[in-house]
Amino acid sequence: MNELQFLTWVRGTGLNIAVAIFLLGVTWRLFEIYSLGRKKDLSMPRHASGASGFHTVFRRSLAPPGMLKRSPVSYIGGYVFHIGLAVVVFGFAPHILLISNLTGLSWPGLPSQFIDLAAVVTMAAMLVMLFDRISKPVKRFLSTFEDWFTWALTFLPVLTGWMAVQHLLLPYTTMLALHILSVEILLIVLPFTKLFHAFTLFGSRWYNGRVNAHKGVPV
């Protein structure tokens, strides 16, 4: 298989396999989790303004009082790399073209220099987060193989995409194929690892907000 055949495969069969596993995986995992259900709360509810599942879904994106100071790297690094990823994934014109081909949805892209900067900043933030995971006793203590593995799987698409655009190290075609392959691996792994928080975090925040809203506590 030469580099062009490799690119054709990842763009065709590879992408189909990855998207299929991703969609089936997400559907199955969501069913597996939320079909467990929960018991109805029989205690008399108390209402308070600002207390609901919906409020908490949004409010939890902000650092609670005092927490930013206690763990600035987690918050600032976390914001930067999540927003950076979103900018790169959904703002880069070729990505929008792919999404448009797959779904018909389209929106204007961001300037490529900006995407370039966002990719570099995202990688820098991810490296800082990795260093924090290694150096902070609590994070190191909690970390398992999955934490290092999913970090690498998230980092590689950004790195290979940036390198492809910059024409670094390998010929463009090969690097592009590697980039697409890395995204496909990420898609396949996402539903079965902690990366699935991208979906469950909404449910978790909602449950927490809902349970506490029942008591009249805005969380």
């Binding site: 987690s74 994070k139 909690l142 934490d147």
Partner: peptide, 15 residues
Amino acid sequence: DAPIASYFNSCVHCG
């Protein structure tokens, strides 16, 4: 229950 399942799946070991 579903909340517990959702919670365990959401944890990213941020500490």
